[in-house]
Design a protein around this nucleic acid. Structure first.
Lengths: 343, 343
DNA sequence: CTGTTAGCGCATTCAG
DNA sequence: CTGAATGCGCTAACAG
């Protein structure tokens, strides 16, 4: 009952051998229809289920891929995972999810664990970039295991990635604010060591330049992507002698915090200050004062990342094909940044 | 380079045998410190990493558990998974995530796949309940693999579960609406075949009874948990000769849809109609008109489900300990259901 | 078409 | 304390 039936058990019952059973089960051409049917029937009767572990050990292919994200309980990452999972599931792969909680030690540890588990590939959004993590990446590559970055990438030769054009996104968002009449635009940024935040910042800067608006260092704050940090940032900005009339936040959560703080001070949005967030988290759409934001097509991003992985694993020895897919960001204009017709 | 180093490779280099290497690596007591250190050192030098697949095949323990949910991109399920993942990761388990998309065929197929992958346990929130799925559950139990339900459970002997008291939740929500002055309370329900929805409905009914409010069948609508369905439901309710002045929705998304529709009709919330949702999705808190809801402590639910699994897998043969943890729901009162002081 | 043998990588029993 | 042999469940090469 508790014991699992193996192909040997089936063979014994049929007075034949494991190979024959294996062949029958695997639809081998060199087997008679008669024995095949017989095997299939008794296998079914005995409730046989193939042990994929044995197969994995034999073939060197586990059919598992590891997916590493900072956290899973944000719509952005959950949606990416959804895209990856749905695409790879259809191709016979299972997805092992791991969270780093933005902790680099955990990140390194997770990579080791996945490697030991013999995953066939690793898809990840990096949390940190330093010597330890780079070593881990090299370890993956040495083992010839496909490594694909999505969203938060490290710049490593021969490693493919799927990202959005964050520079463009920052540029679009800022340009939009300018078009809505803002001249004094603040930027809530993140960990500048990560490309995504740096590129958004550079896009922001470029838009200012183009419009001949002088860059003001006091308008750029590096914060975490939380409501709390957004509130504090707004507090700080409002204290300035010359507070901004537009805010481009690299995070929807921070944008929300800023909006709350600003309104608590009796300042009107979008009347006095216009705000654009980032990521198109569901709440930005649902709010009374809906929040303008940048959509990153996370589900599609996940699907593409999965596709890149599939391509690479089929390329056998030729893993050295670096493919960098860059998706176009979409500016979603909502109430928080909209100029009043009379303005 | 691409070839992985095994304990045999290490043994060869050291002119010893795999057993010795294995013992050294596993910190066996019967080995001299000298050889142990030597092995450890060269293992390190050769970049050795244990192949967990071989270990799993040998030991019959994969250290993987399967987690099955309808979908991953809802904060509720993502948070449960977060709780499970964090708890089990610390105990050496990896988590394989699967989505059923509320499709029973996929659900059955996923269970088979996980069984073949030799998972050490399955934690799931069921999507459907019928003969096929029941068969699958039995297959799991026959193999002596711990099965734990969370949130959406099936009533099966010997199977543990972690849920919230949905009856109590429905009761609390409805009672609250009554306390806020509502006498005509509608209920947006879901698939009544699932206990969670049925229990919420029963709690709703009980609260009405207790207050001597007559049950009105026209006030109960069975819909899906989407914004769209919530809008349609509200449309239908508003058309009634005697429309409700309170709505208890079994879904935050449906509650949101209803609120949008009601407001679009110029009807005031909470003035004319008060609304309570379910699940405490992030947006309910962030909205201008924040939505009252029921919190289900999803992260804790996931952690507890993981704990129940751990207990069961340690109980060796004694898997027959059914444990049904029922968490207390928390009513979160926000603006959408609040009586005005003058009311 | 079917049976025999070997090996994937590891831990473990039994000898020594 | 260390070495040799065995098996976890499966497939594939080889032999018949």
């Amino acid at each position: 009952m508790g014991k699992k039936t193996t192909i040997y058990d089936i063979a014994k019952r049929l007075n034949t051998t494991a190979s024959t059973v294996s062949r029958a089960l695997n639809n081998s051409p060199k087997i008679s229809k008669k024995t095949k049917d017989l095997v299939l029937e008794t296998a079914n009767k005995m409730n046989y289920q193939q042990n994929k572990l044995a197969l994995a050990l034999k073939s060197g292919k586990s059919n598992n891929v590891g997916v590493i994200v900072p956290r899973i309980d944000s719509n952005f990452f959950a949606s990416i995972i959804k895209g990856i999972e749905e695409n790879l599931y259809a191709h016979g792969y299972r997805v092992i999810i791991c969270q780093t909680q933005n902790n680099q030690n955990i990140e390194v540890e997770i990579i080791n664990t996945l490697l030991k588990a013999q995953v066939d590939g690793i898809l990840m959004s990096i949390s940190s970039i330093n010597l330890d993590t780079k070593n881990s990446f090299n370890r993956i590559l040495q083992k010839q295991i496909p490594l694909i970055f999505f969203d938060r990438k490290a710049n490593i030769k021969d490693v493919s990635s799927v990202t959005i054009n964050d520079f463009e996104a920052g540029y679009m968002a800022t340009k939009h604010l300018i078009n809505q009449g803002c001249k004094k635009i603040a930027h809530l940024s993140g960990n500048i060591l990560l490309d995504i935040f740096n590129n958004r910042f550079l896009g922001y800067k470029k838009a200012l330049e183009e419009e001949g608006i002088e860059f003001n260092k006091a308008y750029v704050l590096k914060i975490r992507s939380t409501v709390k940090d957004g509130q504090n940032a707004a507090k700080q900005l409002l204290k300035l002698r010359n507070p901004p009339n537009g805010i481009f936040s690299s995070s929807d959560y921070a944008a929300l915090g800023a909006i709350q703080e600003i309104k608590a001070n009796g300042i009107k949005i979008p009347g006095d200050i216009k705000v654009v967030g980032f990521a198109n988290e569901p709440f930005t759409k649902f709010m009374e004062l809906s929040i303008s934001t940048i959509d990153q097509s996370p589900v599609e991003m996940g699907k593409i990342a999965a596709n890149v992985f599939l391509q690479q694993s089929n390329n056998s020895e030729n893993t050295k094909i670096e493919k960098n897919v860059v998706l176009a960001p979409k500016l979603i204009i909502r109430k928080s940044s909209l100029k009043h017709p009379n303005e």
